[in-house]
Each structure stands twice: as structure tokens, then as C-alpha cells.
Design a protein around this nucleic acid. Sequence first.
DNA 1: CCGAAGTGTTTGAACAGGCAAACACCTCGG
DNA 2: CCGAGGTGTTTGCCTGTTCAAACACTTCGG
Lengths: 167, 167
Amino acid sequence: MTSPRWLTPEELRAWINYLDCSTLLNDYLDQQLRRDAAVTHADYSLLARLSVAPDRALGMSLLAEQLKFTRSRLTRAVIRLEESGYVRRREDPADGRGQLAELTDAGMELMTKAAPGHVAAVRRVVFDALSHEQVEQLATITATVVASLKQAGEEDAYPATLPWHRR
Amino acid sequence: MTSPRWLTPEELRAWINYLDCSTLLNDYLDQQLRRDAAVTHADYSLLARLSVAPDRALGMSLLAEQLKFTRSRLTRAVIRLEESGYVRRREDPADGRGQLAELTDAGMELMTKAAPGHVAAVRRVVFDALSHEQVEQLATITATVVASLKQAGEEDAYPATLPWHRR
DNA sequence: CCGAAGTGTTTGAACAGGCAAACACCTCGG
DNA sequence: CCGAGGTGTTTGCCTGTTCAAACACTTCGG
């Protein structure tokens, strides 16, 4: 690093906007779901993944990977949701080490009640405010950054740690 | 809500990409700062705000607002940073109720050490991967969403709670 | 000058999430 | 068939965050 290249004014503006956007959007959706469906955004995402899975069930590791959760976070989240009656766990018939998380009927019912409001909220603050072109731009930009993160992660991780998502 | 308008496939793709991007990017930067400068991304942002403020000092409420922190979150964060020696607090001479958070020399030194690496990381995973046009698109899109969130927040909040940032 | 209402900040209690270590089970070479 | 090493999951402990209630000070109407 010779002289650390700073961000240009446009980059800085984009960066600050992005940071604010990401925080506020997350807060907004979390509030909306808490208020209207009594779940957090994180729990909602978990249930949503299960609701579209075949048999409404997924292995814990797979689920953690999709959600970008640490395994321990997932364990605790699933325990909580199990206590609330939305999820059930059973052993993976194919692998004695594995557990499957399965959406219960109550969980499915919650999703069908909560999803319309959530989708409406996302629409309202994001997609209704953006043009069709901007939606495409957003998809491309975020995909690019994700790819770039993936590559950066692999390079950094050569010594030892953080294989996929801090393991 | 007649029949809840679902998301189109492109919208859904954009949304999922965005969600992944936001999570992974935050994780990545947090790891980078923890590893290279022994601070969290949140603490870094706080110190960064102070470092560019006049006299390196800001009132607690103003700082909380800029950072989108709860007031209580800010209180505790500042206490922690004060114990680490990066921040000092003093009474606001203009208002006996208020406190000012001020960056110490140690804090400033930390920032000058940490900033280049952080900026390099942001460049690497975001701006080096995007074209100049995409940076502008990102700035516009995020600004639009922030504005739309602000409006949505005001409308929702008519009954009672959540004035600015859940108060 | 008094007290009510407003604004700025902190505290107490509860909980989510991260890391690292432990545990359980599978798989494969010998 | 045994044990070493891998993979899937959970647990213990600690830190950071939230919500609500308390505190502290200021301001303003009477």
C-alpha cells in the first residue's frame, strides 16, 4: 500500500448511503414483522426458507449456510422456534449425525398470515420506489459484490480459519 | 390488500442478492477490522464520526442519530470506548443535560492506523468490483430507498411510537 | 419563582449471537 | 473390525443490544 487510495467523493456518498440504507431497511422490516406477526426478521427468514423447501424440511447445516447463520446461532434459533411451536426437529434418516428442521402446520399458518404484510412492506419501501431498470441494476451490483466478497474470503482464508461462514 | 402482489422473479432475485450482500459485507468488514485493528465495525464507525467532527467532539444525541444507534446503545458503546482510552466525555457547556463525546489522541491514532486498511477493504470488495456508472447507480438507489423509508416511517408513526429511531 | 412538561442520558433486566470447546456419529485405511 | 480423522450439532461463557423505567437538567407558563 503506497499512499492509501481514499474514496472519491462519489464513492463516499454511495458508501454512506448504502450504510444508512442497509441499517434503516433492516430496522424497518424488523419492526414491521415484530408488530404485525410477532417474529423477528431473522426468524421470519428462517421460516420462509423452510416453507419453500421440499417437505418443508431442511438439514441444519444447509439451512445455516443459506441463511448465513453460524451453526450455533441456528441451533438456538431453531430451539426457540420449536418452543413456539413453529418448527419441529427430527433426526436425518440418511445421516445419524444430522438433524432436520421441519416447519409445523402452525409455522406454515404463521407464514401464510405474515408473508403478505411483509411482501407489501418490502414492495412499499423498495420496489415501488425504484424503476424496473434500477431493480436490475441493484440485482447486478449486489451479485457483483457478493462474488467479490466470496473471492476475497477465499484469499484471506488461506492460512487457516473462516472456511465458509466462520465455520 | 386485495390479492397480495407478490414479487416478480427479477425483484425476488434482486431482493435475495441484496440480503446476502448486506449480511456478508457487514460480516466481512467486521472481521477485517477486528483482525487488523481490534475494533468492531460499529465502534469504528463511531470513532470515524468523531474524527471528522469539529474539535473531534459531538453531542451524544447527535452522534446517536448519525449512527442510527439507540441512545442506550450509544451510551454503552461510549463507556466501553472510554475504558479503552479512545474517547473522553465531558459536559456540554451549552446544556447541562448534555454530554459531549470527544476523540482522544489515542483514539485519533487508532483511526489513522486503522483507516487505510478499512478503506482498502471497502475498495477491494465494493468499488474495485463496480464500474463508475454502477457506483452512481448504487448511490441513487440507496438514497431513494432511504427517502422512501423515511416517508414510510413518518406515516406509520402517526399513532404514537418510534419518533426518530425508536426513540 | 414554582412546578409541569420536555429533552438528554443512563441504568436494570432480559436476550440474541459469537467463539471455542465438547459431543455424537460416520467413514475409511489398515 | 479398530481407531483416527472428518463432519454435523450443541453447549458454556461472554459481549453487545434492546426495552422500559429512572434520572438529571432545562424551559416555560403562570
